[in-house]
């Protein structure tokens, strides 16, 4: 019987130790200073926008470590569902809010503002030795990249192109770049041919395309800019003529369909909370560093002033 008493003590001790451990480490160091805020800021939504919000949260913690910012990645739609139930303060989105989602927000009495925080752009690249291709249509890109595509030579892409084997490079399936490209070009997120050299490391794509005369690949525009001396960017014809990828076309959203704005949505109820208003304010002030960190295309001065104006309007209305 003594053994059993002992056994219960051992178990109780283990449970207590576990509790004690959690108790100790959950003590937040209290911040001093009059203008130190506290409370929570709940961000949820697109995993494409999450790197921006996570960078913002990390920078913000350095100035306000009493505010607990959490970022969830339920996807743009999942984020809006929670946002319009008032469960989150800020919704990350890689597309504008849909009509049905607006209705859900209205039904719950939630007013919001759409804030553009960055531009996302993809670039299709070929080797510098490629002197035949200059512009591809979306249909040609689709013929190359669609699932089970049999295109293996440039002359299959366009009869005027030379007989040169086509060698493909691209990001792996885990990247947001892959999701975006397959969605826009192949019409379905994640649908892609699989017989290409896939790497999560963009450098592999750069090296591969640069060293292969018939090579073709794609990745984020900022990465092309860093390697513009080694590669040639193709223009893309999304139905209204060939458009060259550049900071300008990405920011103006004319480089279609491979550029898009990225949004955060902030509700009026959330902005009434001091810590949320302060966090969004910080987000806007530091937007250049945040976009740089997340490797997206920065905002134009005009986009920035719109961003500030929209946020001011939301604060005034709240």
């Amino acid at each position: 019987m003594n053994r059993n008493v002992l056994s219960r003590r051992v178990l109780a001790g283990t449970a207590l130790a576990a509790l004690a451990l959690t108790g100790c480490s959950s003590n937040n160091e209290s911040a001093d200073g009059g203008d130190q805020l506290s409370g929570e800021v709940k961000v949820n939504g697109s995993s494409t926008v999450a790197p921006l919000s996570e960078a913002a949260a990390t920078f913000y913690r350095e100035v306000q470590n009493g505010v607990n910012v959490s970022v969830g990645t339920s996807g743009t739609g999942g984020g809006f569902e929670r946002f319009c139930k008032g469960e989150t303060d800020i919704s990350d989105a890689s597309r504008p809010i849909k009509e049905s989602e607006i209705e859900a927000c209205e039904a719950a009495g939630i007013q919001f503002k759409e804030l553009v925080v960055a531009n996302d752009a993809l670039t299709v690249v070929v080797s510098k030795d490629n002197d035949w291709a200059d512009c591809l249509t979306v249909d040609q890109l689709k013929a190359i990249w669609e699932p089970n595509s049999k295109v293996a030579n440039w002359n299959q892409v366009d009869p005027s192109f030379p007989d040169e084997p086509l060698k493909l490079f691209g990001p792996g399936t885990d990247s947001g770049t892959f999701d975006y490209f397959t969605d826009e070009i192949n019409g379905e997120e994640g649908a892609s041919r699989t017989d290409y050299t896939a790497s999560e490391n963009d450098n592999v794509v750069v090296q591969g395309v640069a060293g292969t005369k018939g090579g073709l690949g794609y990745f984020g525009f900022t990465y092309f800019e860093e390697n513009a001396d080694k590669l040639k960017a193709l223009k893309v014809d999304g139905g209204s003529g060939c458009v060259e990828p550049s900071l300008k076309t990405a920011q103006e959203n004319t480089y279609q369909p491979l550029s898009r704005p990225l949004f955060i949505y902030v509700s009026d109820t959330a902005v009434k909370k001091e810590q949320v208003a302060d966090f969004v304010n910080f987000y806007i002030e530091e937007i250049d560093d945040i976009v740089l960190e997340a490797k997206y295309v920065p905002l134009t001065e005009e986009q920035k002033s719109t961003l500030q104006a929209e946020f001011d309007a939301l604060k005034a209305a709240a």
Binding site: N28, N44, N68
Partner: peptide, 27 residues
């Protein structure tokens, strides 16, 4: 159940936001 994927504070009560190791690994 809304375990968030990025959080830089530890739970400080029953009503606190949280994440857990399997979620963090997954993201």
């Amino acid at each position: 159940l809304g375990a968030v994927t990025f959080i830089t504070f530890n739970p400080d009560g029953l009503d606190s936001g949280y994440t857990a190791l399997p979620i963090q690994i997954y993201t």
